[in-house]
Design a protein around this nucleic acid. Structure first.
Lengths: 238, 238
DNA sequence: ATATGATTTAAACGAACGTTTGAACTATAG
DNA sequence: CTATAGTTCAAACGTTCGTTTAAATCATAT
């Protein structure tokens, strides 16, 4: 039967077009006719190959997140293996988690900046099925990295670590997604020099110090949790 | 002629309903029929009172941002007056910029958490008219605060400050918008204790140290700009 | 060559969208 | 009371949406 097929490049054409358009106009703002038009395939092709628009979006992400999350787990495994039971340095954990992400921006075969920006923007999409999907895709990776951070920052309350993880994700998403979204707000010429592969490297150099600074910031003194800590450097990472 | 009218509470009902629904489902994901249904007004009322759906969204924001940006400018004026020409402390600048924002979350008459979350989510909406609108609304405030940060951190390249301003906005947006969006990703029970007024206070205590830590983080050593600086605390703010 | 399953195609489906219309209702002013 | 401007209302407008259908086309294997 069907064996040495070219894997019907119709599928890939649709996924590429959808990736770009979802990034540019969002899920609800992108119609099937826009997608099939850009992909130069028949309107019915999406439903034939993927079943529905929702399933198409899921596949757009699955094709990229499969690599991303596998790589994230692999790098964390490596770190923990080399640490021989010792807690990891926070900077190493962030490097593994966000470095893999930013690496995708440099590699066009992994989606490049287009996928990075799509990912950043989609995390705030309110549609239920999107949030449910992401929860499932991310569950294992988040759990592993959360635990690594708990061990790396033993004197920081778990709740505080989760919050800061959350905040780091937000900052990174904006840095990625907002290449032109918020620059209009900051009214500036900053922007990544070009869309090329070193755009992601610049991004990393810009963002990683910020994230580390936030993660290692003094804890809030606040009637919110049992322990509190007023020295200005609660952790020793990096 | 028309003078002592009750200002037709139809308008306010529509604005309130739209605020909540845009927050919950996004702009494209919210239909006029959902809005007029929730507001219990006739379908045509939106076009009658506001002209179009786009104009409605603009009015939803204008009604809140008018207060926010006026207050932000006022607080910055106060700070600069009291500083008598000296540069401000970065922490004071952030407190003025983000403190006013978070204050809205505590005050139901300013929109409360609903508007805060709407604002956080809408900054990533890709629709052109939305980005254009925000650019106009924010231009003056951003310009003033940018300049204050330049003066407060004289040894940090302007480009780097803009980037970190951007990153702080992103982190804050997520912290606000993601109350249930990303918690599903972090799979956690953190969340704000309640939707009440102290939710915003908790948020502030959580987020402000993170932002300050990020803003004051060591600069990246990187072939990107003329000066570079490898000491671990490039600024003295606090 | 022909049969078979996979894919593509043009056309249409009903539903929902934002918007418009013109009549009905309300309330103030002369 | 009548006139008038402001507001609400049910109904319909034309368009676009995601999806489905059934025939046409392509590719492979016997």
């Amino acid at each position: 039967m069907n064996d040495h097929k070219p894997l019907s490049d119709t599928r890939e054409r649709i996924l590429d077009a959808a990736e770009r358009l979802f990034m540019e106009s969002g899920y609800e703002g992108t119609s099937m006719r826009m997608i099939t038009g850009e992909a130069e395939v028949n309107l019915a092709a999406v439903n034939y190959h993927f079943g529905s628009k929702e399933a198409l979006l899921r596949e757009v992400f699955r094709r990229r997140l499969a690599w991303l999350n596998r790589e994230r787990l692999r790098e964390l495994d490596d770190l923990e293996l080399n640490a021989a039971g010792e807690p990891l340095k926070p900077s190493a954990i962030l490097e593994a988690f966000f470095g893999t992400l930013l690496h995708m921006g440099s590699d066009e075969s992994l989606g490049g900046m287009t996928f990075l920006r799509l990912l950043g923007r989609t995390l705030t999409e309110p549609a239920d099925f999107i949030r449910t999907f992401f929860a499932g895709e991310y569950a294992e990776v988040i759990e592993r990295y959360k635990r690594a951070l708990f061990r790396a920052l033993p004197e920081v309350p778990h709740e505080e670590i989760i919050w800061r993880f959350h905040l780091m994700l937000g900052a990174m998403s904006y840095a990625i997604a907002g290449t032109d979204a918020l620059q209009v707000v900051t009214g500036c010429e900053l922007d990544l020099d070009n869309e090329g592969p070193n755009a992601a490297k610049q991004l990393a150099a810009r963002v990683m110090p910020f994230l580390l600074g936030g993660l290692r910031a003094p804890l809030p003194q606040f009637p919110v949790s049992q322990e509190q800590q007023s020295q200005s450097e609660p952790t020793k990472a990096a």
